[in-house]
């Protein structure tokens, strides 16, 4: 009872925040509503018993990634987005496509609604079990992910570094 009301409350915050992200015209408002979505998703993970994933969600998503987004929005100083006229083809094809897609999703969800429900907390995602899987069964993907992150960091540094800075340093020296 309590769990269901908490689930419904934070699920509603999730959906409302996502809608607000789309409706807001200024990117900083969209970023703040995305933080609200991520924090309420962390609560949903807690309801599922995934404590470690909830902590990671708050620390990495709502912390690190969103700080990066807010920092870039501040750096670019992009103002309010101006609207343009949508194309007619998008309206003709998009609205029936959206209806068909929602009908398909609803059909699949209702068809498979017999999926069992497990009591909250019966499969706890403690860091001990997660670490056992991550550093034993999934060791190779874990190491490959570290290489991916290293390449991403190097790519971001190369992309964001000023192209003229190297030549200026050569002139100065």
């Amino acid at each position: 009872m309590l769990h269901l009301s908490i689930f419904l409350f934070f699920g509603a915050i999730c959906a409302a925040g996502a809608v607000n992200l789309l409706v807001q015209r200024h990117p900083i408002n969209s970023a703040l509503s995305l933080i609200a979505v991520m924090v309420s998703l962390a609560v949903e993970y807690l309801l599922l018993g995934a404590e470690f994933v909830a902590a990671v969600q708050v620390i990495i998503y709502a912390g690190a990634i969103m700080v990066l987004f807010v920092f870039v929005i501040m750096l670019l100083n992009a103002g309010v987005e101006e609207r343009i006229e949508g194309s007619r083809v998008a309206m003709i094809l998009g609205i029936p496509g959206m209806l068909v897609g929602s009908a398909l999703v609803a059909w699949v969800l209702l068809e498979r609604s017999g999926t069992s429900s497990v009591a909250v907390g019966s499969l706890p995602g403690y860091p001990k079990e997660i670490a056992g899987l991550l550093f034993h069964d999934f060791l190779l993907p874990f190491e490959v992910t570290s290489v991916l992150v290293l390449i991403a960091i190097m790519g971001a540094v190369v992309l964001a570094s000023h192209p003229d800075s190297e030549t200026q340093q050569k002139k100065e020296s």
């Binding site: 995934a50 990671v56 990634i65 999934f138 991916l148 992150v149 390449i151 991403a152 964001a160």
Partner: peptide, 21 residues
């Protein structure tokens, strides 16, 4: 849950590269 942690890592890498671009 392990895969969701991998997805979070990929999201961080994607955000860094995308914002750099």
């Amino acid at each position: 849950q392990i895969f969701s942690i991998f997805v979070i890592t990929d999201a961080a890498a994607e955000a860094a590269v995308g914002l750099g671009i």
